[in-house]
Write a protein that binds this DNA or RNA. Structure first.
Lengths: 341, 341
DNA sequence: ATAAAAAATGCAACCGATTGCAAAAAATAT
DNA sequence: ATATTTTTTGCAATCGGTTGCATTTTTTAT
């Protein structure tokens, strides 16, 4: 059973006694082709089982119709909804996605950029790894003017578009909410400040404290990788504090959930003894008891927006001067932070 | 700022006064090239900033070095670990992954197959959608002898390899465990029986009952999509039963978790009144109270195995007669099912 | 030194779609 | 009927790496 030969435009041309050029044009609504000729071409193509060969096309046009995606990890609810959104838009626009994970490491991120660059993707959609310091590994991409869009974990760059939510405002809202519930000593669990999402949330936290005349105490701010384990460690630290905090604002849900579990094990009551809020609206937040107050933001839409913005640029329609796009978010209040009513 | 022209093997050939053929061979350890010639070629390539052009190569070799992946959804912990495993192996072997989601719908799955087929992926890794009835949409793939490997949700086909765990045995173990804890009326939550994972688990459930002289009662078996909502509905049905079940074995964790929550709301004690077990070892299982008894199976390894098996076939090394590969699983017993000590 | 065998390199024809420009065909004007 | 314009179609080069086969160079044998 050998692989039968492919049907090419030459076969169609021969069958119809036309030139390959005409067939090529006929196959994609070129204006200089008679309607009935086009119809004959399309029909014959179908009849012969013609399948467009994108390598040949790519080679000639120097375009792959492929988008390279780099994310820290796929295995969060948020990220998978982002990808779902990208996929939807990309498919509709005739693009394929090549997705790779940096596993939160710059080194892997650098390798991924190289791989995708060598695969000649037409554009990049990137959410940065935990410890990426600068954008030098994207130089080869930017030097060739390949469009690069950051989402969620972004990095300011004159040539790149950023798609984010207002992390400052969201964090401000969360903190204000905790304060409104009577919290006076609020722990904030943050992560690498190289990442906008964490600096902005920290800023929002500080601003809210300031606006409510609560002194900022740096001993209440923890920096870690927001993992389950980190949550356990923070909880232990909290339990050892002389003056016990009465609120926790974690930069993600996984860590918040881990804190709740650990604090409950130690006999504390959430939210009575200590109120807790997270970030991301992960499905976990609805399973933990008490259900977790958190910030929801639209992964699917962020993915769709990132992909459609990139595709518009690729198709030369627009986008040269665009800089930042900000999506809406919502504070979702659940029992974990409700000390009153 | 125009895109500067690419460096090609012709440029290298000219610079070294060699033929493009020699350069092409030198660039990829062809045995018929002198080591020092190869070294000169590689050095000059680096010096000129040469970048391999895979279209040209693809076109000539009729190979894309790309693997098409179709999964029901990305947004489960299991699936993202599978993908992570595939990505690791694929990258190491010089392949790219194009990932698409069927969103549990045949129609989308059919569309995805077409898209990937047209992108000329070298092989397929597929986990079937919820309602896929048959494999006819893969005919074009199989007719061209493009390798197709199913994982997790598989379908028997003479030309395809399947990678699975022993769902029958795992379900048998879960059920036996529940029985050993004193359960006599065990509900089983199943899903579309077109999917092997669900039929096999149902069979395992039945076999365990039989082996322990517990009559099979079809009123205790529910069929749904294993969603949160489904869990709520099952719980309500359970609460209405005259003779209340004392155990639940759900085919996934999400649904099991949802059941626990709902049953607790209704005042039942888990596991005292009713023991619960799930399947998949999702992170949720460690958050729900009581922690959920479940079956762990290695997503990462399943992904790695699927990818490496496919790549071995693509590289013509082997695999023509392979049919099924079975991975190990573990029963993880947690509090949700421990009625005794 | 010469012949034979082995190793290294080059030639040139691919792979299949695209596209600028020329040529042919059809439509319109003179 | 001829010239001019407008539509259609075709020619042929191009994209850049690959590979079977021929040729040249080097090594080994005689």
């Amino acid at each position: 059973m050998t692989t039968q030969k492919e049907v090419t435009i030459y076969d169609i041309a021969e069958a119809l006694d036309l030139s390959p050029a005409t067939v090529s044009r006929g196959l994609k609504d070129h204006p200089a082709i008679r309607k009935d000729t086009r119809k004959r071409i399309v029909e014959k193509a179908r009849e012969l089982g013609y399948q467009h060969n994108s390598f040949a096309s790519n080679l000639r046009r120097n375009k792959t119709n492929t988008i390279g995606v780099i994310v820290p990890r796929l295995n969060s609810y948020f990220m998978s909804t982002v990808i779902a959104g990208m996929e939807k838009v990309a498919n509709a626009g005739g693009y394929n996605l090549i997705i790779s994970q940096s596993m939160e490491s710059v080194d892997k991120e650098v390798a991924n950029v190289k791989t995708l660059f060598n695969s000649r993707v037409d554009g990049f959609l990137v959410s940065l790894a935990y410890d990426t310091e600068d954008l030098s590994h994207f130089d080869m991409v930017l030097d060739k003017n390949i469009p690069l869009i950051f989402f969620d974990r972004v990095f300011e760059h004159p040539k790149c578009i950023s798609i984010v939510i207002d992390n400052f405002k969201a964090a401000y809202e969360v903190t204000t909410h905790l304060i409104s519930q009577g919290c006076k000593r609020i722990v904030h669990i943050s992560a690498n400040l190289k990442r906008n999402v964490y600096t902005d949330r920290l800023r929002g936290y500080k601003a809210a404290l300031l606006d409510h005349n609560i002194p900022y105490d740096e001993k209440l701010v923890f920096f870690n990788n927001l993992s389950d384990q980190a949550g356990i460690e923070v909880s232990e630290a909290i339990l050892k504090m002389e003056q016990r905090p009465d609120g926790i604002f974690s930069s993600n849900d996984a860590c918040a959930v881990s804190c709740i579990r650990q604090l409950k094990l130690a006999g504390l009551k959430v939210p009575t003894d200590i109120a807790v809020a997270g970030f991301n609206n992960d499905p976990l937040s609805k399973v933990i008891e008490p259900n977790l107050t958190t910030v929801n933001y639209p992964g699917q839409e962020m993915g769709e927006l990132a992909a459609s913005t990139l595709i518009r640029r690729l198709d030369r329609l627009e986008g040269a001067n665009l800089n930042t796009m900000v999506l809406r978010h919502d504070l979702i209040v659940r029992e974990s932070s409700l000390k009153k009513g």
